[in-house]
Every structure is written in structure tokens, then in C-alpha cells.
């Protein structure tokens, strides 16, 4: 086998590894919702935020806690503080896409509401992160969204 063949094979192997890693990013995670939530909370400043009960989750997002496998929601009592963290572990039949849509449209509406009155709050809202990954739905509005996102990915 000449040197070309070796290089070609190495390329194909690296490519396959690359694809496997990429696809692996999307696989279902076995992490516990509580652990994921704890890691995210540990990574950001949650002064003034409280873990909320199931009713608040339903009131804000319109879904029952029982629709999912694990729901952890943290927000402030005061509506003027727009910071929130939501970690939801979706089961097989959970309305994950609907929840993600609702989360995004709610954040967009809130942004529109705060845009005219509070530039600082609206800047936070503009940078919200909302994603569906590894069977989880994750939503965060906070000062360091990048850290929150990293903590979420790491915990999965």
C-alpha cells in the first residue's frame, strides 16, 4: 500500500470520527434534571432568585409539571427582575418542541415589553438562550448566559 492510500484511509477514519462525535452531541443524555439544574445554578449569579413551585411553572409556560420527567424552574418574585433558569428533562412523549416554542415566544414578547422601558433588562432578555439538547429543554436569562450554557452542556 502506498503512502497515498494510508493518508486517504486516515482521512476517511478522521471524517467518520468527526461525524460520530457530531451526531453524538445530539444523543439522549442520562443526566438527572436536578443535577443539571444544580450545575447551571452553580455557574451563574442567582442572587435574589428562588426555586419555583409547579404552579408557577404552569402559570408562566402553560404546561403541567407532570408532562415531563423533571422540571426545575428558578425565577425572581419581582417581575422587574427578568432573570430566569429553566431545566426540563423531557420524556419520550413530552411536548418538548411545544415547550421550546412557548419559551422562545414568551422571551420574545417579554423583550418587546421591556424594550421601551428598561434598556438593561431588555439587553439581558435579548441574549437569552433557549435550546433543546440531549432530551432536555434549557432556557436561561441571566448575566452570563455563556457560562450557563457551558454548565448545561457539561452537565449532560
Amino acid at each position: 500500500m502506498n503512502s497515498y492510500r494510508i493518508k486517504e484511509i486516515i482521512c476517511v477514519v478522521v471524517l467518520l470520527v468527526f461525524i460520530i462525535v457530531l451526531v453524538g452531541q445530539n444523543r439522549q443524555s442520562n443526566a438527572d434534571a436536578k443535577d443539571v439544574f444544580k450545575s447551571v445554578v452553580a455557574a451563574v449569579d442567582t442572587d435574589g432568585l428562588k426555586v419555583c413551585k409547579a404552579e408557577k411553572f404552569k402559570e408562566q409556560f402553560g404546561f403541567e409539571k407532570s408532562d415531563f420527567e423533571g422540571v426545575y424552574y428558578m425565577a425572581s418574585d419581582s417581575i422587574m427582575d427578568v432573570r430566569e433558569i429553566l431545566v426540563v428533562r423531557c420524556g419520550d412523549n413530552a411536548p418538548a418542541d411545544a415547550l421550546l416554542d412557548k419559551v422562545q415566544s414568551r422571551a420574545d414578547d417579554k423583550y418587546g415589553l421591556f424594550k421601551q422601558y428598561d434598556p438593561t433588562a431588555s439587553a439581558l432578555l435579548k441574549k437569552y438562550v433557549a435550546e433543546k439538547k440531549g432530551g432536555f429543554v434549557f432556557f436561561a436569562v441571566c448575566d452570563d448566559v455563556a457560562a450557563a450554557k457551558r454548565a448545561f452542556h457539561k452537565a449532560l
Binding site: 502506498n2 497515498y4 492510500r5 486517504e8 482521512c11 476517511v12 471524517l15 468527526f18
Partner: peptide, 20 residues
């Protein structure tokens, strides 16, 4: 960008192989 680099290297090599 990794994908593009792999594609470039692979095709470069295989065409040289072809000529060889």
C-alpha cells in the same frame, strides 16, 4: 472548518494517487 480541511486533504491526496 474541520470538515472542509478533511475534504481538501483527502481530495488532494487521492488525485495525486490517481496520477501516480
Amino acid at each position: 472548518v474541520i470538515l472542509m480541511l478533511l475534504s481538501i486533504y483527502f481530495n488532494f491526496t487521492i488525485v495525486r494517487d490517481m496520477e501516480h
